[in-house]
């Protein structure tokens, strides 16, 4: 999947010529979580590092430490002529909007949020589609008919994960129960593996035997607790199957690394303003299969999930997006 996307990017680059590369000065502004969060930001960091390794072009980077620095960092890069400038995370939207207006000649990109300006590329993901697929697998793998979901911070984006997941579970087993818990209401909820583990143990005590974590670094505790307690878990964002081989059912992939890589590699010459929605069809989201989880996924399961994937791409299955109306049709 990754290879195909990269090939496409490389092909696009080859057609347009590589002359623009010399002038490109890409930069990336990470969100408060920091670039080593083993999740969203780190995934973007990996994409940027991959770009550096492949092209030898250095990129500017900054980790936000407080709210005021969002705008300051983006503006600093703009002042120094960096372009394209990538902002990680929805929280940077206001800052990107402000600075992008003042520097119409520079290119900006934002992940997980839409900023409607002619020099901004907005990259958003259909997390509900990927979550639906892992939910389907969870529903089929569950013996007790009860599965869990551990979210990070209670925000609509995470409910979108949970809602897609619940829909997938119900598609596999209509009478299944989905136990949903959020870790907290503040940013600390992204980085609390201990609490994540406790919530998971609580869900397992209620009978859940598959638990999906969409909680940044908190998810590491979820995966650990599930592995210790004999339940299966599902990772998120990056492929986390390797963390507990044979105990992680799969991971819901959200390819922010590919998105960052493509924006950097495309540079100014191939910059496409507007909204880029990456779903199953674009390989922006998906489920992870490798040697670590192969024994856990039966042929039936694989066939069902591939069929669901094709149906979602074809439009015969419509997965409800929680953020469209802030409600979820299933619980």
């Amino acid at each position: 999947m990754l290879r195909r996307t990269l090939l496409a990017a490389a092909a696009a680059l080859a057609i347009s010529g590589t002359a623009a590369l010399a002038e490109d000065k890409p930069a990336i502004v990470f969100d408060i979580g920091g670039k080593f969060d083993k999740s969203f930001n780190e995934s973007m960091f990996n994409g940027a590092e991959k770009f550096k390794a492949e092209t030898g072009v250095a990129y500017g980077e900054f980790e936000i430490a407080n709210e005021a620095q969002r705008e300051q960092a983006i503006r600093n890069f703009a002042d120094q002529g960096y372009s394209p400038i990538i902002a990680a995370g929805f929280a940077q939207a206001a800052a990107v909007e402000k600075v992008a207006k003042e520097y119409p000649d520079l290119k900006f990109a934002i992940v997980d949020m839409v900023v409607d300006l002619p020099n901004v590329q907005s990259i958003v993901f259909k997390e509900h589609e990927g979550s639906y697929l892992v939910g389907l697998m969870a529903g089929m793998a569950s013996k007790s008919g009860k599965v869990g979901f551990v979210g990070g911070m209670d925000i609509p984006l995470i409910r979108k994960f949970g809602c897609g997941y619940a829909q997938g579970v119900k598609a596999a087993k209509a009478d299944a129960t989905v136990i949903q818990n959020m870790t907290g209401d503040t940013g600390a909820a992204w980085n609390d593996p201990v609490k994540g583990g406790e919530i998971t143990k609580g869900q397992m005590a209620q009978g859940a035997d598959v638990v999906y974590a969409a909680a940044g670094a908190t998810g590491l505790g979820v995966l650990q607790a599930a592995a210790d307690g004999g339940a299966l878990s599902i990772g998120v964002d990056a492929n986390q199957n390797y963390l507990h081989p044979g105990k992680v059912l799969t991971s819901m992939l959200k390819r922010v690394d590919v998105a960052v890589f493509n924006v950097m590699k495309g540079g100014n010459a191939n910059f496409k303003p507007g909204i880029q929605v990456l779903g199953l069809a674009e390989d922006g989201v998906g489920y992870a299969m490798d040697d670590n989880n192969k024994p856990l996924v039966s042929a039936d399961m694989l066939a069902a999930v591939e069929k669901a994937k094709a149906d979602i791409i074809a439009g015969t299955i419509k997965v409800h997006d929680y953020t469209a109306d802030n409600t979820c049709p299933v619980q």
Binding site: A91, A94, M113, I155, T323, D325, N326
Partner: peptide, 17 residues
Amino acid sequence: GYLINYWFRPVGKMAVE
């Protein structure tokens, strides 16, 4: 956090503000 999420935040807006 609760108030911003469920009171102040306009529907459909992702950033918690």
